[in-house]
Amino acid sequence: MPQIVVQDLCKTFRVAERDPGAWGAIKGLFHRRYRHTSALDHISFSIEPGELVGYIGPNGAGKSTTVKVLAGILVPDSGVCQVMGRTPWKQRIPHVSQIGVVFGQRTQLWWDLPVIESFELLRAIYRVPAPVYRHNVEEMVALLGLGELLDTPVRQLSLGQRMRCDLAAALLHRPALLYLDEPTIGLDAVSKLAVRQFVKRLNKERGVTVMLTTHDMDDVEALCRRILLINRGKILLDGTVADLRAQVSRLRRLVVVLREEKDWIETDEARVIGRQGPQVTLEFDPERISAPDLIHHLTSAYGVRDLYVENLPIEEIVAEVYQGAGM
């Protein structure tokens, strides 16, 4: 049975419109005009326990509105939403005690307190039994390397350290479901990798269902077997990363490093799209020429030092999907 079921979810926001300038502000006090924006437009999907789903889309696409509905913060205008058999906004307290939420931009720890004291407070808030709590803290400290951070006030932590502590904090009550909102935003490369590895392990070993919203396509490639692509309140694609690639174009890329610089390199089936010293990037259609054939052709015609096949970067694919859908 799916853990999350969303059916025909709709949400429209009413935004007050105001003429610019001071006069507009005064007029707005007496007479308001409203613009209706559809944040969710008949959204439907379902997620099975143990899935790791990337929820992606441009700013204002409806990502955070969806997450807010799933978390029980926002009530939709219409549609069905069931998380672990409950309607989030109708049973807020039982619902939120079984989910974990991490916002990359905001901490849920107490700013001026050492990390461990925030954990203690969360233990009391979620009513975690003492032995379970001790075990969980030990596990998190080991997995996320929090050892020396526990006694540091949160305001003195670096962003990467804080994010690791926030992840631990969201998991102390052992939620079956975790929403991560931009968990790697602003992090350095090492911290990003640490966060990704941790999320992957959490999903694999503990079977925690993870729903990840992000702008970082490397997060998606590294973590998600499944993608939900949303824009303007509609789901544009529900499938794997490969499905996403297939939807846009079959074109692949081959990067060739020549032994010596050549002014000219061309084949009938492939097109040069980039050139940097001896390194040439070719684009080809695998239906017209297979990668081995193209490689064979090149190696026999030119002196080749190195070559590799490259996938179209996922950012470009997503951008194309948006454009294709007229955005």
Binding site: K68, A71, G72, I73, R92, I93, P94, V96, S97, V101, R106, Q108, I125, Y126, R127
Partner: peptide, 12 residues
């Protein structure tokens, strides 16, 4: 600041 969301996310 949007911090009321955090309050709603806690089971109290």
């Amino acid at each position: 600041r949007g911090d009321f969301d955090r309050i709603l996310l806690r089971p109290r």
